[in-house]
Simulated scan of single mutants.
Amino acid sequence: MAEDDPFADLGETLEDEPDDEPQDTDEGSESGATEETPSQESVEPRDPMTDTAFSYEAAKQRPFYARQATIEDFDSWLKYELERELNQQGYQNIVVREMTDALLRTVVEEDLVEEVAKRFEQARESDFSESGE
């Protein structure tokens, strides 16, 4: 049934939003104060170790369609590998949107077309060999 509804998993995608909102709510109220008095902006410098790179409002959410096992592996890697690494480097207030943005920029900037194409081909070949075709 989920195959018929392209938006069936939208609720699952939106589950990540609460992780981002609390930090942005505080940040949003601070930025709201600086919007009212622009001179305060220069008084309060941003700290890259604690302040997020961009606000929740600046992000565009897009659903990703992948197999459940791939999503679970990705979520584990994101939370237990990447977030831990960033935390060890001293970063605080780490939010999913920043890690996802960095990941997408890495794929594009490192020109991983050949590697992604290879994984695509492996998945196709694996699925065909499993189904006996």
Rank of each mutant, 00 (worst) to 15 (best):
V43P: 00
V95K: 08
D111V: 01
E57A: 11
Q88I: 08
D73T: 09
L103I: 15
W77L: 06
P63G: 10
T106M: 11
Q92C: 02
S129M: 04
Q88V: 04
M1D: 07
R105L: 06
S129A: 08
Q23I: 14
A58R: 04
I94P: 02
G90L: 07
D111L: 01
V96L: 06
A53G: 03
F54L: 04
V113Q: 13
E21G: 02
F64V: 15
R62K: 14
D5I: 02
D24F: 04
E85N: 02
D73V: 09
M49C: 00
E72V: 14
V108G: 00
E109P: 00
L112H: 02
E133V: 13
E81A: 07
R124M: 14
Q122L: 12
R46N: 09
D24W: 05
E98S: 09
N87T: 15
P45N: 03
P45C: 06
E109H: 06
G11T: 05
T25D: 10
Q40M: 15
S29P: 08
E15F: 07
F74V: 06
Q68S: 15
T34P: 00
E27Y: 15
E17A: 02
R46G: 07
D26W: 15
T100M: 11
T50Y: 09
S39W: 12
L14R: 11
Y80F: 13
E81Y: 08
E21W: 08
P48A: 03
A69N: 12
T100I: 13
T25N: 07
Q122W: 05
L10H: 09
A33R: 12
T106A: 14
A58M: 04
S31A: 05
I94E: 01
E109C: 05
G28S: 14
D9T: 15
D24N: 13
